[in-house]
Amino acid sequence: MDAETHELIAGYALDALDADDEARVRELLATSEEAREELRALSEVAAAMATATSGPTPRPELRGRILDGARAEPPAVVSLDEYRRSRAVPVLGAVAAIAAVAALALGLWGAGASRDLDDTRAALDRQQAATAVLSDPDARAIGLETGDGRLVVGEDGSAVLVMNGMTPAPDGKTYEVWVAAGDDAPVRAGLFDAAHERDVVPVEEPVHAGSVVMVTVEPAGGVDAPTSDPIVVSQPA
């Protein structure tokens, strides 16, 4: 890291950066392990400065206020904004962590933990969508008619397909997700290339009561209507 980078991270650890520098550090933290390590160390130093303060102590009521506030809102609903604000935690790492925790809570260990998320913002958005559903306390898990895995549907219809042990899509092919409501033609709902022991795939169209989610094998890039029989079919939501 060059001197300027070191200085940026120090400013970040002190919460002293102006907006554009702060944006630069966030970019850096998303991609550089070295930068995250530096921030970890300097954040400890900044926090040590917190212990050096002296002043009045909080009123005893504060503890109750905090717990009341916590009770008033459901836990573990993590907004993207909150990810971006949680300063000690790099964004991509944070997403991987919540994916792992959410998956663990649903007995789906392995879903997010082993994913390599260092590539794109798109991966971040997909993971965010998936974790939002998986951390929704009202989400339902629906079995599959065909295929090994399950469909998890949140109250608002956002959904995630969790697939076990799918083989990677063949060269030049991709898996395409579809949502079919009633007798309507299936609507395309995202692409994925199975690459993991367990794949967590956000369904990019809402899944309403009675809808069925399917997966077909299609030419790379996807198509607008299925050209092959589905290899995965959910039970009706």
Binding site: P75, A76, V78, E82, Y83, V89, A94, A97, I98
Partner: peptide, 8 residues
């Protein structure tokens, strides 16, 4: 409380 799941 809200973001504990993101802590590493």
């Amino acid at each position: 409380w809200r973001s504990a799941a993101t802590f590493r």
